Simulated scan of single mutants.
Amino acid sequence: MHDVSAAEDALSEAFAAALSDWPVNGCPDNPEAWLMTVARRKGIDGVRRRRSGDAAAQQLRAMLDQHATWADAADDAAIPDRRLALLFACAHPAIDTNIRAPLMLQTVLGLDAKTIASAFLASPDAMSKRLGRAKQKIREAGIPFVIPDLDELTERLDGVLDAVYTTFAQGWSDPNDADLLRRDLADEALFLARLLAELLPQEPEALGLLAGMLYAEARRRARRDAQGDYVPLAEQDISLWDASMIDDAEALLRRASTFGRIGRYQLEAALQSAHVERRRSGRTDWTPEVQLYDALLTLTGSPVVALNRALAIAEVDGPRAALHIVEALSIDKRLAEYQPYWAARAALFARVGNLGEAHHAYEIAVGLTGDPALRRFLQSQQAALLNGGGAMHA
């Protein structure tokens, strides 16, 4: 199957049908098979309605029939979940590396171009064009949209990890679970990450990804107070953390370290572990976090990592040292609409007493915030400037 757009449309309609049907009639025993069956019907009907491609209908039917046949032989399948299998299918080596994860997020996991663009610090228009070009290349080059064999998974793993990580981050962004669709994204990502760790137990980055997600998920209940207001990490009630989940994350991270192949997701998880340890022990020295951020920045070159590193440096060398880094990052246009950048900038300016710059940065951060609870928190920090109390948290 080469027509990703046709498959995407059919699967999207199937998910929409599920949202209408399942709350009324209950979730089917085999939800994946239900989705594939509905998608096959929707796809064929849609192509007929458009009257623009018997070939596309045949391609869609072939892909979905392939998955239906493959599902019947699930015991023998290399990948025990169809969604995960489709992620690996989208990670074909002939597809450009930088578009694989966005393609998976849109085609398999159903995120829209605007959400994907935000996750990758790109404009929605640019991301839409990139996705369109990728699908056109798949069609024109005849790149096979098929499930890879088990021995092909390792070379495709990085893109799949990126997609699962981004999906979790999107679900994690609504801390009070008010947005059920976003909460489902986090659950879906955790499910897929567990499958990856079980499927590829010798891949330390798969273990590191799951560990990092478990560290974050363990703190979910502590991110809001009884009134539903946002609580920053430094003020969270650690008794609300899920200790068992943290233990599982620690075990996964230790196992990953035994392979001697350090990567991005292990470093991300190690940072989560350091934050947990610091809060539990009362340690005030942030040197371990800075060292981990140094390694992660060297590995990724990410402006988001550079921003978080600056906040850690503020705790070691003071806010002025951090502000030099944050000011230098201002030339990176990808951060212009990145809310955490402006929140961090505001908090640092407040700490050095530059209340005018702090107020301005808070204005921008508030305007870029979609979560009402986080918006109230930032507004309270901004109001504290006028009351002479300063602001202490990004």
Rank of each mutant, 00 (worst) to 15 (best):
G388P: 02
L190Y: 07
D21M: 01
I79E: 10
P201H: 06
R309A: 06
Q236N: 10
L84R: 02
V24G: 00
D237M: 04
L87N: 10
W34H: 12
G110P: 04
K129C: 08
R309H: 03
S244E: 12
R279E: 08
T107M: 06
Y215Q: 09
H92G: 01
R182D: 02
W286Y: 09
D158V: 08
L311A: 10
F145I: 09
S330I: 03
L386M: 06
W286G: 06
A78I: 00
I238L: 14
A73D: 11
I79T: 02
T284A: 14
A14R: 02
K333I: 14
Q106Y: 11
Q227P: 00
R50E: 14
N176P: 01
L329R: 02
D285Y: 08
G46W: 12
R183C: 12
T300R: 13
P80N: 04
D371E: 14
A328E: 09
E250K: 07
A18W: 12
L199Y: 04
I99R: 07
L385A: 06
F259I: 11
I246A: 00
G26K: 09
A57V: 10
E250H: 13
F145P: 08
R219H: 13
R183W: 00
A336K: 14
V290R: 04
V366W: 07
R254E: 15
A295S: 15
G370C: 07
N176C: 12
L109I: 10
A113C: 09
G301M: 13
S273Y: 08
A186K: 09
P340M: 05
L378G: 03
R264D: 09
A328C: 04
D184Q: 09
A89W: 06
A251L: 10
L323G: 03
H2V: 05
G263T: 01
L368G: 10
F349N: 13
F349I: 11
L35F: 12
A74K: 03
A117I: 08
G171K: 10
D317I: 01
A295Q: 15
V164R: 05
C27Y: 11
A358D: 13
G43V: 02
Y293G: 03
R219P: 03
G159Q: 14
D187I: 01
A383Y: 14
L19F: 05
L355Y: 14
L60I: 01
D112V: 10
E152R: 10
A249L: 00
A384V: 04
R261T: 13
A57C: 00
D371L: 06
R82V: 14
Q202S: 12
R283P: 01
R61W: 08
L121D: 06
W70G: 04
R100F: 10
A346Q: 03
L84I: 04
A85P: 01
L150R: 15
F349M: 11
D65T: 00
A10N: 03
Q266I: 04
R351N: 00
D151E: 15
K129Q: 15
Q202M: 11
W286C: 07
A270W: 06
E268R: 04
G263D: 00
V146F: 04
L185Y: 10
V366H: 01
